[in-house]
Structures are given as C-alpha cells and as structure tokens.
C-alpha cells in the first residue's frame, strides 16, 4: 500500500540561529509498484526526503503515512517499518563489516528477529537475486570488486524483503557496464516482485531510460512531479537548477534548430532512433 507524505517540513538546527529549512512543505503520494526517479542538484533536499521515508528523521511539521498509519504515532512499530522500507545509502559497500559476505547479508533479517533458518534462506535468496556468483558468498567483502561489493550491500537490504526500496545514487563510481547491471537488477525487482523503487540519481540518462515518474527537488520543495517526457520538456528550467535533460533530448533540440521537424519530447535512445529513422524515410 501507499506511502504518503503530507505537508512535510524539516529544519536542521531547529531553534538556533543556524536553522536551515531542508524540506519545505513536501506532499507526495507513492503508490505500490511504481519506479520513481528522484532528481535535484546537491543540497536540494533529496537525501533529507529519503531519510524521512523510513523514519530516520522526524518531520518538524507534517505527517508521513505508511499503509494508512502515521509512522510517528506512538504505537507504530518503527522497527517493522525499517524492514518494509529498505534504504540503500550512497556507497553502501562502505557499510559492509562482517568477515564474509553471507554473514553480512544475514545481519538485516537477523535483526528483524527471524529464526536462523529463515535468516539464512533469505540471505541466500537475496544473494542469488543480485546475481553474485556462489564462490563469492563466503569470501571477505574486501576481496570483491567494486560492483560486486555494491551488489552484496544491496543484497543486505533485499534480505529484509522490503516493499519499498530506496536507493541513493546506486551507480556512483561504477563503470558503464556496472551501472547498467545495477539498474537492470533494480528494474527487474520492480517487474518481478512488484517492489516500489525510488531511485535518487544524478544521471538524467539513467532516469530517462528506466523510471515511470520523476520527482524534481529544488531548494527543499518539489518543483516537478510527472512522467519523464513531461519533466524533461522543461529543459531550460532544469538547466537553471543545475540539472540537465537527457543527452538524446539535447540532440533532438539541436536537430530542430537545424531545421529538422523532429519530436523534441523523446527521452530514450530507442525512441530517438525510431524518430530519426521516421524523418529520414520521408
């Protein structure tokens, strides 16, 4: 069921002279099974927003509802919420700490209070899901490559079987193939398990290729919330905010300027290719 943010405002350093309003009256409805891209320049409030979703931060004012219940109600179990809303932080591999990968992945479900058999079963499934080869399971995390470590860290969150998966820049620092692999993995989690996915990203190209809906943050508020096509049609405004449109959209704008009557609302490579082929066929 849905996650709802109702007029959420958050201030750091509350009551002091250095009060900073990081979130300003944010209202969002996140229905089940949606793949959402959350974009915004550094300091726009994305990470602060994300930390509200599983109750790590408490709003200064406003409410957050999960399945109809206020998550800051006294009798609401935050622990259960954290099993349901899984957060993968930036560079999650820095948080691997156990002596081997399998034990590390067990840490989350173990803390949910599950019995040992169930914990191990879930850890095994999660490692399979992220596509780590079997011979990595009992290796120290430090012996894995960058991309593998990141998968192991994501497995640690998946093992808790979350309904909502939030990933804060999961592809930063990975090579292009590694980027595609992680995004394909996330996309398949949504398609096969019906998981809700929120992807915080600085790559407009990745967001355009994968998500259903884009939420754009600027100065603590939501300034666009729509389909990729609609959001990226505001190319100039996005550039003014330190963001950009996908490169293929830029290409179409350049073609239009050169006198080609092309559709400038395309956002993916496949669409762009089809559009150009169509124009050339005339």
């Amino acid at each position: 069921m849905a996650l709802i943010l109702d007029h959420v405002t958050y201030e750091y350093g509350n009551g002091t002279e250095l009060t900073v309003r990081a979130l300003n009256d944010v209202s969002l409805v996140i229905p089940d099974g949606q793949f959402i891209g959350l974009i915004g320049h550094t300091g726009s409030g994305k990470s602060t927003l994300v930390q509200h979703l599983n109750g790590l931060l408490t709003p200064t004012s406003g409410h957050i509802y999960y399945n109809g219940e206020d998550i800051h109600d006294r009798d609401f179990s935050k622990k259960k919420l954290r099993g349901r809303v899984g957060l993968v932080f930036q560079y999650p591999e820095h948080q691997l700490f156990e002596t081997d990968v399998f034990t590390d992945v067990c840490f989350g479900p173990k803390n949910l209070g599950l019995d040992k058999k169930e914990v191990q079963l879930r850890a095994f499934q999660a490692l399979k899901q992220v596509g780590l080869p079997d011979d990595c399971f009992y290796q120290p995390p430090f012996d894995l490559s960058g991309g593998q470590k990141r998968r192991a860290a994501i497995a640690g969150v998946l093992a808790m079987k979350p309904e909502v998966l939030v990933l804060d820049e999961p592809t930063a620092g990975l090579d292009p193939k590694g980027r595609d692999e992680i995004l394909d993995l996330v996309s398949s989690l949504r398609d096969e398990n019906g998981m809700t996915v929120i992807l915080v990203s600085h790559s407009m190209d990745d967001v355009a290729e994968y998500v259903d809906r884009i939420v754009v943050m600027d100065r603590g508020g939501v300034c666009f919330d729509d389909t990729p096509k609609e959001v990226f049609s505001h190319k100039e405004e996005l550039e003014g905010m330190g963001l950009s449109a996908p490169q293929v959209t830029d290409i179409m704008h350049a073609l239009k300027k050169a006198g080609w009557s092309v559709d400038t609302t395309v956002t993916t490579l496949e669409e762009t290719k089809r559009e150009i082929l169509k124009r050339l066929a005339r």
Binding site: D175, P176, K177, G178, D205, P246, Q247, V248, D250, I251, A254, L269, T272, K273, I276, L277, L280
Partner: peptide, 29 residues
C-alpha cells in the same frame, strides 16, 4: 565494460539500421 558518448551510440545504432553515417561521431554538432 565501457560505453561511448550517447550521440556516438545513437549514430552507431542508426548505422546498423542502414543509415550511412561516418564512424566516430563525437559531438551533437
């Protein structure tokens, strides 16, 4: 495990569809 700039990739894909474009296009221009 690498990639090419998006515009290079687009030109490459179009070429595969039979559009006679030169190799190694690097910029939108």
């Amino acid at each position: 495990r690498l990639d090419v700039p998006k515009v290079t990739l687009l030109a490459h894909e179009l070429k595969k569809e039979g559009v006679p474009l030169p190799d190694g296009i690097l910029t939108v221009k």
